[in-house]
Amino acid sequence: MKYSEHTIARGDVSLHVLDFGGEGPPLLMLHGLAGSSRELIPTAEALREEFRVVLMDQRGHGGSTRVPSDLSRQAYVDNAIAVLTALAAGSRWMLVGQSMGAHTAFLVAAHRPDLVEHLVMLEGHAEGSDDVRDAAALGEYFRSWPASFADEAHARSFLGDEAIVDAWIADLELTEDGLVPRFDADAMERTIAAVHEPRWEEWERLRVPTSVVFGRDGMFSDAQKDELIRRRPATSRHDLVGGSHDAHLDAFDEWIEVLRARLSADSPPLARRPSPGRQRSGVEPTEGSAP
């Protein structure tokens, strides 16, 4: 599997981008907090015959600038817009995001509806959190990681066996000191603190077709999911039969089926599947190949 890698400069930040090519409509996918484009490669591979799929490492993540000075929501939005306009100027994109990436995606669609044909959010929400301890706790968790892991076995022993762990381990950078994360814990705390600010105004003014997808054992309660739809009744909602907050990893086949249907203008609406809703707290191309 071949893809092109691009570096896009945005102020003092370099953005790492994977472009899978193809003749279909352009599709940008955005990963979640402390993740990277790598975890979305299987989704890109599943869709590359129908779309020109593009993945990006968001600022502070993966192969992009590790500790940028600006970690505001607007900075993330501007980065996504820079990729959209650099790679397919004048086109309307399909926009897909998971978790923080979903939050960024809907803000992009709210600010630049002229660039977005359809928006799909996996385990994303506009509500935020009014408890400052949430962001602090996440920062403390990432700061609890060792400065480096001796090897993958050491990393797995420390990190556990949740779906996201495979993606975290695959994304560790090999250095002389061992395997180290590609993100900074303090930067992650600052980033998620901004995500936790309510963004109902932008959500309610969305004018592009929008679909939300939730894992059965995801982060949001039924009440939170219902409120998202109440605030924007035109939104299409689909609750997966399986999957966690990282349903793109642990409910992959169902995720792809739902995503493909949501993005296809010719597909009939999917029947909504109820779930328990359990709550959890310029451009320089080079060649690369997907692992």
Rank of each mutant, 00 (worst) to 15 (best):
R38Q: 11
L159Y: 05
R190M: 13
P268T: 05
D250L: 09
I81V: 15
L228N: 04
T210N: 09
E257M: 12
S267V: 01
P198T: 11
E5H: 04
W145R: 15
R59M: 09
S4Y: 06
P291S: 07
H154I: 00
V96F: 11
V108Y: 05
F183R: 14
P268D: 07
R48Q: 15
L71R: 13
G178A: 03
A251H: 08
R73L: 07
V195G: 00
A102H: 03
L206Y: 08
D12G: 08
H16V: 00
A170M: 02
T235L: 11
E45G: 08
S236C: 12
E173S: 10
H111M: 06
D177L: 07
I8R: 09
P209L: 09
I164H: 01
G242L: 14
M29R: 07
A185C: 12
D131V: 05
F183E: 14
A126P: 06
W200Y: 13
T286P: 00
F220A: 05
E5I: 00
E189W: 03
H31T: 04
V53C: 15
S129N: 14
H118E: 11
R230S: 13
E176S: 14
H31A: 13
W255Y: 14
P233I: 02
F220I: 02
V17I: 13
R262F: 11
G60M: 07
D171I: 00
A223G: 13
R231F: 06
D186I: 09
D131H: 11
S211G: 13
R38E: 07
F183V: 11
Q98R: 09
E50T: 06
V212G: 04
A265E: 13
H248D: 03
R232F: 09
D130V: 00
A290C: 07
V208I: 06
L159A: 13
E204T: 15
L240K: 06
R262Q: 14
G97P: 04
A251I: 01
L30W: 09
W203P: 00
R73P: 00
P269R: 15
G24H: 04
E39H: 03
L107Q: 15
F106L: 01
P285H: 07
Q279V: 10
G215Q: 03
G124W: 11
E202F: 12
P233D: 09
A185H: 10
L259D: 06
I8E: 06
P113T: 01
A261N: 12
D217Q: 12
L33N: 06
T65I: 03
R231W: 05
F51Q: 10
A89Y: 07
L174Y: 02
P26T: 06
G282Q: 15
A88V: 00
L172G: 08
E227C: 04
I8V: 13
V77Q: 01
M188N: 11
V96M: 09
P233W: 03
D246S: 12
R207P: 03
G243M: 05
V241E: 12
P276R: 14
L179I: 03
H31P: 08
G242C: 13
Q224L: 12
L87P: 04
A136G: 09
D217F: 10
D217L: 11
A89F: 05
E257K: 12
D246N: 12
Y141A: 06
H118Y: 02
G22M: 06
D166Y: 04
